[in-house]
């Protein structure tokens, strides 16, 4: 049985279509990622799955319970961490955790083993008010509060947005350990580089699912020729390549441009072209696609 089952869910706000006929399953014990830019419909999906929002059409089940009819049962077995930091800023770290433990009829002591390695880092600051924590610590506290009642399914809406790179890496390590404890985790993120840390991902854009698979399968399915390229004049190179008929897409990826070609053109011919434009210190190599390449490609196709 799936931990989460979504069948043809549609939801619109006024005239804006937030989700269009979305369907997917999340297996038990899986670390599942919902990957897409802001406004793709990720938060709406989370609100429906956490029983806060009614879908216009379609059905969704969490651990076999219907999100509208059995919402009370779902609310006992899930942990939810909203995208916006939603704890009591004027309560201390300890008071927040205590409060959420109590309303789920448990205590910090009882389930300390679940949050030990997360809350452990926060304990030196347990008398500090939540509003005065750094971004990374806020996320850890929010995760602790969502975990304290030992949920079967954990919903994390953009947990790493606004968090520094080190804390982000730490956070994903923690998710790995939670998964090892058998908790199903559904996480959303706008950062494509985090997609590869999930077991399976769904790429979502303007309310539509573009692709669902393991990150490897998704990147392997990209069959177009792809090159990483750079030269001494980065922006002129980008402009010139974008004007070429052989270039399907040219996107900046950090220090390199990712060039997808559509015509039969060899690496050598590309190099010659760039040289003929007067660039120096040219680097050019064929590469494997990343999730972001696939995402941009699927976006363009839609």
């Amino acid at each position: 049985m799936s931990a989460v089952k979504i069948e043809n869910i549609s939801k619109s706000f006024d005239t804006v279509l937030a989700l269009a006929q979305v369907s997917f399953d999340v297996l038990k014990g899986e670390l599942f990622g919902l990957i897409g830019p802001d406004g793709a419909g990720k938060t709406t999906m989370f609100k429906i799955l956490t029983t806060l929002l009614m879908p216009d059409q379609g059905k969704a089940y969490v651990e076999g319970f219907h999100t509208v009819k059995d919402y009370k049962k779902i609310r006992r077995i899930i942990g939810y961490m909203p995208g916006k930091f939603s704890l009591y800023q004027d309560l201390t770290v300890e008071e927040n955790l205590n409060f959420f433990a109590t309303i789920f009829n448990t205590s910090i002591k009882e389930n300390y083993h679940l949050i030990a390695d997360i809350y452990g880092q926060l304990e030196p600051f347990k008398k500090r008010r939540a509003g005065n924590l750094s971004g990374g610590m806020k996320q850890k506290l929010a995760l602790s509060c969502a975990l304290i009642h030992e949920p079967k399914v954990l919903f994390l809406d953009e947990p790493t947005t606004g968090v520094d790179a080190v804390s982000r890496a730490e956070f994903w390590e923690m998710l790995g350990r939670l998964k090892a404890k058998g908790i199903t985790i559904v996480v959303s993120t706008p950062y494509m580089d985090e997609a590869s840390l999930c077991e399976r991902i769904a790429l979502i854009q303007t309310g539509k699912i573009l692709s669902i698979d393991t990150p490897e399968h998704i990147t392997n399915a990209y069959h177009k020729p792809l090159y990483a390229v750079r030269s001494d004049d980065f922006f002129r190179l980008m402009k010139e390549l974008r004007g070429q008929h052989f270039a399907e897409r040219v996107e900046p990826f950090g220090e390199y441009l990712h060039l997808t070609t559509k015509d039969q053109i060899t690496e050598h011919e590309i190099h010659q072209y760039i040289q003929s434009q007067g660039h120096s210190t040219i680097e050019l190599s064929a590469i494997e696609a990343t999730i972001e390449d696939v995402f941009l490609d699927l976006m363009q196709a839609n």
């Binding site: 806060l52 009370k72 939810y80 909203p82 916006k84 959420f100 789920f104």
Partner: peptide, 13 residues
């Protein structure tokens, strides 16, 4: 406004 109501709702309360 703070979003904490969502957390309270997503609980057995």
């Amino acid at each position: 406004e703070m979003g904490t109501m969502d957390l309270l709702l997503v609980s057995p309360l």
